[in-house]
Design a binder for these strands. Structure first.
Lengths: 155, 155
DNA sequence: TGAATTTTGGTACTAAAGTATGAGGGTAAC
DNA sequence: GTTACCCTCATACTTTAGTACCAAAATTCA
């Protein structure tokens, strides 16, 4: 199908040429009586074939249009989906419970709240929190939250 | 200058045509002796002018350049410079001192620290903090910090 | 199995945070 | 001038947070 379309112009050109054989023969016979007619005849032929050549070329050329690609930059703001800083988290050497407590702490929960949600006693939470502060080198929950967010070890 | 360049092909075409007048006359005289020479002669003319037409057309067409603009998405790691949510901040209706205290609070400072840095008594800070909690609808400094960061009213 | 670590919990205490209430001085609007 | 905030500070109290020290299960690892 593609080849048919590609060579459409060439086939058309062939057909037109075939038709011209007859047309030329007729013209040749008609102008034979007129003096100097041969010059006019050749002139017409030249003109016709020039136009034909231009027409054919323009149709062939159309598929060969130079395409200048201009890249237009569009800035797409990338909202980074927050990645936990695993390296910093490992440095602190928190155990799983301590990290769990830290997360709840940073959400604004009290020791009592945390104890309730983890089904532990307040004493246990206090122990975890104290160890947490020691490991994080802070002295209060507010400092712990601030530091944890700075280090990107919690959301 | 531009016009000269634009019509260069047309001028060239004209010159070639002038030269052809002589060439044709010479060919016409030469082939007059040969039988059926006129057909060959016309065929050559047709062929030549077709090629000429194609040549002219291809040179004219060459100046037709399509400009295709392709939008290229470029992902920029846009580090947004943090904008304080003024709307939310106004909703809370905090006065200047309360907001000042909130900022220091969120940095992990104790009431005593805040009092020292603002040259105020701890009592004053406690009052501000209490009013702050009431306006923010929270019950502790950790909740205040969490909420303030959520609302983006502090850095 | 034994040692180390984690997880849990307790008591006792101190420090800090938070609440409630009052009060005095300042400023700005009505 | 009175009303309404804003800012300051105080006292008294309750609650929560945080420290220190201890200890018993549970788990992990060599």
């Amino acid at each position: 199908m593609r080849y048919l379309k590609e060579f459409r112009h060439i086939i058309l050109y062939g057909l037109i040429l075939a038709m011209l054989v007859f047309a030329l023969k007729w013209l040749q016979w008609k102008f034979v009586l007129v003096d100097n007619a041969i010059d006019i005849y050749i002139g017409l032929v030249a003109l016709f074939f020039t136009i034909l050549g231009i027409w054919v070329a323009s149709h062939i050329m159309r598929s060969r249009v130079e395409t200048l690609i201009v890249e237009k930059e569009i800035i797409v703001p990338q909202s980074e989906p927050f990645a936990i800083n695993t390296a910093e988290l490992q440095k602190l050497n928190l155990n799983s419970r301590e990290y769990e407590v830290l997360q709840l702490l940073a959400q604004g929960h009290s020791n009592a709240d945390i104890a309730a949600s983890l089904f532990l006693s307040i004493s246990t939470i206090k122990t975890h929190v104290s160890n947490l502060y020691f490991k994080m080198d802070v002295k209060s929950r507010t400092q712990a939250i601030t530091k944890a967010k700075q280090l990107k070890i919690i959301e």
